[in-house]
Design a binder for these strands. Structure first.
Lengths: 209, 209
DNA sequence: ACCTGAACACCGTTCAAGT
DNA sequence: ACCTGAACACCGTTCAAGT
């Protein structure tokens, strides 16, 4: 039993690793829901005792943070073609990010409840937000307006996903599709942001002081 | 020890009752958070064993439903003066309800995570939604438009509260107040609904067929 | 270094038993 | 009718022990 495989610990399916633990946790949650995620069950799924997990993950909270990050990581604007023209076309960027966020959440609906407890700690997700903020300010929004634009669109998107993933109130049979409701709300917000911006950059009456 | 108090069981502070159990549960959650709510701790708080609670509440899930209902029950539109003119002024009604929902949730921030798991079962809350829907259709919105209007405003409001109660991403020090962000988004949505309605009731080009 | 067994202080819930 | 004690099958986490 010499160490014949000491160099490939990261992808090694034999030993544990933080990545393997987190990946399996996400699979478990996707399949059986958040409530089914216990250290003991996760350990069993991986073929180890629960206590072994603590070698690779600090806490259960740490594990949940990792799930959060996995779902939110690497958000690329959906339907917005060329990154080069984001600065000019902030509306396509912001809309694309909202659609990407919606898709990511709907791909892992069982993870959505986490967004209720934890602030957005995942650095990958914060980076996405940062990119959006930069693009918005580069295209002429003030820092405050950019921040508010992102907030307002994010709020609506996660609220929408909450409604969609547990069928909140008004989803009677005559209802329009949820996706069209999402688009309606999203466009309403983007429109309001654009309107305000137009009002600010081209004031009719009093000139810029 | 004759039964000197047999007639006032509902408000009797000596015996248990569903109402007393639920009220205390809400107090516990408000003070210590959802995670602190266990049947055992709640029982102890009331001076009984945990198992006694099962006489008045079917489940822990049932208890959580009751919390849900307590927070959402009896939503009265905030800032909308006269119920008599709701049919005419759907915008004041819908805006008032959104503000009332926001206030109710912010009064019990620890309960907010529940909105992530449970569909809106509470009959009191569904009644509020029903009232709003009726007012909207009476004021000329189609059934579908009314439903969508309520959804879209509800989505934004609960998304907003989620951001506000756990400080999601973009709340840097230079940020506008969260209340003003809420108002901006809410007005944007109401405006879009009004615009669409205006477009539908007074089409410029082709007359109503 | 990595994994494990036993243990601690908790859970929700059932059920027979008390009054 | 209403409350309780003991019990069952779970939790997260620590810590000393194994290899």
């Amino acid at each position: 039993m010499a160490r014949t495989r000491s160099s490939l610990s990261a992808t090694d399916p034999v030993g544990l690793s933080r990545e393997r633990v987190c990946r399996e946790a996400l699979a478990l949650v996707d399949e059986e829901g958040l409530a089914a995620l216990s250290m003991r069950r996760l350990g069993a799924r991986l073929g180890f005792e629960a206590m072994s997990l603590y070698r690779h993950v600090r806490d259960k909270a740490d594990l949940l943070d990792a799930l959060h990050a996995a779902v939110l990581g690497d958000l690329a604007p959906e339907g917005a073609a060329d990154p080069a023209d984001w600065p000019a076309n902030w509306r396509a960027l912001l809309g694309g990010l909202a659609r990407a966020l919606r898709s990511a959440l709907l791909r892992h609906p069982n993870v959505v409840p986490l967004f209720t407890r934890q602030p957005l700690r995942a650095p990958e997700a914060r980076a996405t937000v940062e990119r959006a903020r930069a693009a918005l300010t580069r295209s002429g929004l003030s820092a405050r307006d950019a921040e508010e634009a992102i907030s307002v669109v994010g709020m609506f998107t996660i609220g929408h996903v909450l409604f969609e993933t547990n069928g909140v109130p008004t989803d009677g049979p005559g209802g329009r599709g949820k996706e069209s409701t999402f688009r309606f709300g999203l466009e309403a917000l983007l429109e309001a942001i654009a309107r305000r911006q137009a009002r600010r950059t081209a004031p009719r009456r009093r000139p810029r002081k």
